[in-house]
Design a binder for these strands. Structure first.
Lengths: 339, 339
DNA sequence: TTGTATGCGTTATCAG
DNA sequence: CTGATAACGCATACAA
């Protein structure tokens, strides 16, 4: 049986109030009392019960991090940084996977999942803007959106400028002399903000270079996985006039696409240059190394945690929008000399 | 203000006892009562408070998954499966990263970390056997070890047969005609079970082939990361008589080692064949694709969750040892035809 | 089968 | 500065 506050109080001959004060680091406690209590705590190996504390205070000290799949490198690298950033401000993180299941996302966000015990949520959404708006009414949980860059004043957002990131990536391919540039990652459903913004940036860069975007070069991808990138690239390469470069909306898509290029008997970047977005570590060791748009994940994690923590303190604070920096990293998959 | 059990009771004109019975799915409740209560629950949008329930029952419904780093692909893929397996039996999972910090591991295991609120722990240890034994005394938390295969009757274990897995991998390299086979991943500290067992399997395979193990070919690696694999392989390749094959104790080490081979102007597998252990998805798309020993992660996750759930039910049950199956997957990095 | 009352371990209110 | 005591929301022993 673990010792309780009451046990410590009895042992030290003080009231539970005083013990609680000492444990919680209350200012006004006499030195005598404090040391007496501290001794009792040590002797009994007392530890506060976080559950009882939560019941009383209404705070769990936990943040929920909701992602589609934790084994997607971008999300696991983000999770690492979020967990660390949260620990620094006294929060722990519970990861929930939605598995691309909209219904599951809804349950999580509306609190219909009865086991919700977070003080706040960091949510990397797959849902559409409309769905998000509906959920808004159902819950009052402090919520920060990650990577959903469509600021509507309802939620705090932390994301890169997707349009510019995509434009930068595409412009880089253009600067390497490529003209027939394909894109992988567009979503058939137009209400997803992120892919749409990336498509916009891609088309913007082409237009700026005086190139008319070719719809046949805009390839959808449902899951941003290696498999989807592979399948999409095979499709593109089988066309009568294949692309000489591919801009992938995620590094994972790019890893699959690179493999597809090789399996088609072509070379990267000589025949097809490839660039992604995310800067996962895998791309720094692949052959060739992957050019990409690097997101400052530690920055995103830190800001997101700070935002949600602030909102927990003041639920009525106006929603803020944080734009995270991004950097283009040119590696072998667009520069050559790799393979 | 969320509705409580009492609110529902008042609304339905019944006692809290009855409401609690309905919510908990108690058998003997009359249909009249049940429907009356259910209606009130719906009207008030009542949801049980999990924290209060926990304080009362002593159960949190949470499992802790303790890993060195969640962004290591093997662990993130394992985490995905553990979260899913746990959900199927009604548990949620909180991930804790130790970051290769022994002190942090100790805190987590001994419950010195005062925020411990798990019913049980799945622990992928970095600690040595001695440390683990010491911790045993300090906590009574149900604990299942993952990947630590040194059964001593204290804890439940779920792991592959490391000796055989390593022997199989090495034997595969031998069967491909390689004779100067290096290994990356040994630990300087002899008290870590897993690397030691893999080294034993490696040496066993060599001996069976009549080859005397060469200590110069046994290269340590602290973190099983791409960077460590890279550095180790560079070392090995710089030797006067470089190896013609490398057995890496993890796929991630192998990814780094492959890159090092290329950066040294050599080819995989023509000049140096490479095999890993884990079967992470990355190795199915790399160039060349990576030969490896595949661990049945879903099996490991399912068994581990089942074990810890059983131990939560009966803390005094004898410790069990589960040996997970492994399969050798020969891919391009040992067979050729890849690059 | 259902109602009443107690306690899980804390924090916080109110006196002293 | 410290002591006694009432909640927090739920589950259950005991009664009816």
């Amino acid at each position: 049986m673990p010792a309780t506050l009451r046990d410590v109080a009895d042992r030290a001959n003080v009231s539970v109030r005083t013990v609680s004060n000492v444990v919680s680091g209350y200012e006004h406690v006499s030195e005598k009392m404090r040391s007496r209590v501290l001794a009792a705590i040590a002797e009994l190996d007392y530890r506060p019960n976080p559950v009882a504390r939560t019941l009383r205070t209404g705070r769990t000290g936990m943040l929920g991090l909701i992602v589609p799949e934790i084994d997607v490198p971008y999300f696991s690298e983000l999770a690492r940084d979020v967990i660390n950033a949260a620990a620094e401000v006294g929060y722990r993180v519970m990861i929930d996977q939605t598995g691309h299941d909209h219904e599951r996302e809804r349950q999580l966000l509306t609190g219909e999942d009865r086991t919700m015990l977070f003080d706040g949520i960091l949510f990397s959404p797959l849902v559409t803007r409309d769905e998000l708006r509906e959920m808004n009414a159902a819950t009052s949980m402090p919520l920060v959106l990650l990577g959903e860059h469509e600021f509507d004043g309802h939620y705090d957002h932390v994301a890169i400028d997707n349009v510019r990131a995509a434009r930068d990536a595409t412009a880089h391919l253009l600067s390497r002399g490529r003209t027939r540039i394909a894109a992988i990652g567009a979503q058939p459903d137009e209400s997803y903000a992120t892919p749409q913004q990336r498509t916009a940036g891609y088309e913007m860069a082409l237009s700026e270079a005086g190139i008319e975007p070719d719809p046949a070069l805009l390839h959808p991808a449902a899951h941003y996985s290696r498999a989807d990138g592979y399948a999409a690239a095979r499709d593109l390469l089988a066309a009568s006039i294949p692309p000489d470069a591919i801009f992938c909306y995620s590094d994972l898509l790019a890893m699959g696409a690179m493999r597809a290029v090789f399996d088609s008997g072509l070379r990267v970047p000589e025949d097809v240059a490839i660039i992604g977005i995310d800067d996962i570590e895998e791309g720094r060791y692949s052959r060739p190394t992957l050019s990409t748009v690097s997101l400052d994940t530690p920055f995103i994690a830190r800001e997101a945690v700070a935002r949600v923590a602030a909102r927990i303190e003041d639920p009525d604070a106006p929603a803020e929008e944080i734009v995270a920096p991004h950097t283009l990293l040119a590696r072998e998959s667009t520069l050559g000399s790799g393979s």
